[in-house]
Nucleic acid binder design. Structure first.
Lengths: 329, 329
DNA sequence: CAGTTTTCATGAAACGTTTCATGAATTCAT
DNA sequence: ATGAATTCATGAAACGTTTCATGAAAACTG
């Protein structure tokens, strides 16, 4: 059993079994072959320790059974979860995953797409940050959270609905003056609709609200300033906060506690994403949870569906409120 | 520019440029070629939108520039960090990463190794849980935290030293009766030396200590039982705890708080791994941090070093104590 | 049992690249 | 200006697989 420079090939197996090369191929691929032949070939494979060589097939068929996943990193727990579920979905279908971390670098996004194409991957799933990215047309391409055009399917959670849900939940829990906080520079992507949903719910409910949306790279102290600026008589102006992501929510809570403001007694807070710590069952904060598993499944089944033209261009999946201790229920 | 069924090949480029096929290959690979020829070829590549095809090369050279990384998952923040740094180290050397999640499933470990070999990866880095795993000899193989034999290089943190450091640090901070807690079933791997280091330090220091080591799959309530069993007069018998991993440490802290025991006032606690939350600078608990980046770098440079015979069979990297709020300093 | 259809093993071509021996053209030394 | 040494473009073979046309044998039909 070896894969080194002179590992046995199908030709060797054929010789050993006394059959034709094509017959070996059929046996290996499970195509219909006479029982006697099949057995001879299997015995020969066993004897030689033959190992299938994907390179040969890739060259001949132009298919690799590999999908490239382009994503900023795996440090952010939400991305980690996404990678995890996408991998499960791929494995189920006998595909492998070539993983590319961009670290939010737009040049890397471009380079990885090029690299993936050179490696003849069967498809690309990408969560990118360059709004002007050129999407190749000759390889199945699916985005997460970024809508480029109707010809590039985009899978995303119902971000608008999530923002709307957060505001309504806070109202239901007694809040009458809300705030929205977020950070991140791409304003045209799907997640930016969280704010829109939130705002439109506040308007519907007829309650006052504040909004602070910072660009990526802005120091977090700006949020601190925002919060202190809204303290009057030792109390926050608002009694409910919706934060764009759970990670930011976590940091906001730390700030609030340092300022002597109690969550959820003084102010209730809802995040977004639904990340959990250490495989714990409980989320880190009360949150609008993304249906990560469904998102992953949708990405994979879409990228693998041959007839991309029949695929919807925006696949929007429902979110869910989950209690995590930073609200009253 | 296309990679579809009839994308341009080197032959097409050669025809377009009016040169030989081999010349195109040399240009693409940056080998020495006359300036005039080089220019003609580059122009032709530009005109045709030629895209290099890795499959052809993989077949011809039996090299893919792909390394397989076999790891349980990316949910555990320590693994996520490891994947992250390994990928950086690979990218730096122009290698890609084929990622395989085992979910601690021993059959998957075996299947992925087989799959990786069929895909002719140039090497395998693996963090596995099957102590009887058969390591293929025909592909560079490096393990993390698992020592199989002198012919299979293993990269690991100084686990023994880490255990020793934890005990000494707790002693230095005033603790005079310690406890060690861990969970996990593979008792022969490198991380199991954390306990050995801890025990030997306690013996050296001449202080009493408790040990509870549970098998994987044991309900966490057993730890709860252990803790309550050591409460006398509302106080814990011991005043310092060393926990095998940060994730378990986190859960232990939750238990302690629920029992009305304060950390670090009533009992000081040190974990292991050095994980941080949400890209935060501060670790989750006081901890013995693994040198993740160095581990990643060592894995990659080892797996890529052709002359595996010259490589040490156990690469042991130094750990560091980091304060994270669950000790007094 | 003759004629027709079906099954299925065979052998060769093709996929796109790298690499090697060949020989033409150039450079250099004398 | 001649011969030797060097440079470097060329064309073809090889890597291991899939797939297709071919034809022999087996299975049906009436």
């Amino acid at each position: 059993m070896q894969t080194g420079k002179n590992a046995p090939t199908m030709a060797d197996v054929a010789r050993e079994a006394g059959v034709a090369l094509g017959t070996v191929s059929k046996v290996v691929n499970g195509l219909s072959v006479g029982e006697a032949y099949k057995e001879k070939v299997e015995k020969a494979i066993e004897r030689l320790g033959y190992q299938y060589n994907s390179s040969g097939r890739a060259l001949r068929t132009d298919r690799t059974n590999i999908i490239a996943l382009i994503i900023p990193n795996t440090i952010n727990p939400y991305f980690a979860l996404l990678v995890h579920h996408i991998n499960i979905a791929l494995e189920k279908r006998n595909y492998r995953m070539l993983l590319c971390f961009t670290e939010y670098d737009r040049n890397r996004e471009v380079e990885f797409i090029q690299m993936a194409r050179q490696n003849r991957v069967d498809g690309i799933i990408a969560l990118t940050y360059n709004p002007d990215l050129t999407i190749p047309e000759d390889v199945p391409f699916v985005t997460i959270d970024r809508f480029f055009s109707v010809s590039v399917p985009c899978v995303a959670a119902d971000n608008f609905g999530g923002g709307w849900l957060a505001a309504n939940k806070l109202y239901e829990l007694g809040c009458r003056h809300l705030a929205f906080m977020r950070i991140g520079s791409v304003l045209t992507n799907e997640p930016s609709k969280r704010k829109e949903g939130f705002v439109s719910a506040c308007v519907e409910l007829g309650i006052p609200f504040e909004v602070i949306a910072l660009d990526d790279g802005t120091p977090l102290s700006r949020f601190q300033d925002f919060l202190t600026g809204h303290i009057h008589g030792g109390k926050l102006d608002f009694d409910g906060i919706f934060v764009g992501t759970d990670t930011l929510a976590w940091q906001v809570i730390t700030m609030l506690r340092q300022m002597g403001i109690n969550v959820p007694e003084d102010v209730q807070l809802i995040g977004f994403d639904g990340i959990r710590m250490f495989g714990d069952l409980n989320p880190v904060v009360s949150t609008i949870a993304q249906p990560v598993q469904e998102i992953a499944e949708a990405c994979v089944s879409t990228v693998l569906s041959k007839h991309l033209s029949n695929v919807p261009s925006l696949i929007c999946l429902p979110v869910k409120y989950i209690f995590g201790g930073t609200t009253k229920a």
